[in-house]
Amino acid sequence: MFVRWCVGLALLLVICFISPTSAQDRAYFVTYDHYLEEPGNLEIAVATTTGMPKRDQPAYTAPWLELEYGLTGWWTGELYLEGVTTRGNGDAFTGWRFENRFRPLKSEHRINPVIYVEYENINEASRIQKEIVGAGGLEFDPIAELKDEHAHELEVKLILSSAVGDWNVAENLIVERNLSKSEGFEFGYALGVSRPLGTIASGTSCRFCRENVRLGAELYGGLGSSVEFARSEQRHFLAPVVNWNLGNRISVKASVGFGLTDTTDRYLLRFGLAYEFPVRSR
């Protein structure tokens, strides 16, 4: 049901061609840079993570809906609703997340810090993998069993991001704490680089111009926890990403994440569609 709802919303976004303003240019799925949502703007996005496990476990697709709102120039709030569907292993609504990003400095610096605080009310069937922390692979028990194991988690990130020439370079350090059970503090990271294909804007309105495309790559993974820090259990992914700004406030992005360790899925395919519009004057 949740999956169908997300697909319906995606179609609605595609047909909403209203005005000539631009959508956001963030290329990454996991890594955050220092650009917050413009104050008064709401971004509605639907995205999916499709995992292809290495062994005989069933493939899965985890869709999520994202509502991102610029509260002020230094504060962006975001709500996520997420689900999962698998091939023959069940499907479920897997919970919600509420995140806040704060940018403490007034203007641009060589390195721009952003503080990220998120509360997650999810269950163990969650597969969107917006971040990867801790150690060990995903659990592949039936979704019906996993969805009954609830987890309240608090996640904090230190986001460091820089504009280097035409490139963006971003580093995220992640600490997560499960408030439901004692798992210690779990650690993760994400690194991203990206740049637009075209460096000068053409004078005509065009969807297929190089200037509308941003390419990049991200490296992300879980490092372990304060309880367990086994290198063999770590998960790392390397993922090329592409973001295409279609104009009319709509952008699409896609990535293929390649699992680099034994405990990772073989691939993580991600696809996202975002629509951004002002909901109040700034």
């Binding site: 120039g73 007034k106 641009e108």
Partner: peptide
């Protein structure tokens, strides 16, 4: 930009 006035960078 200027995060205090809302001007995006």
């Amino acid at each position: 930009g200027n995060t205090r006035t809302g001007m995006p960078g």
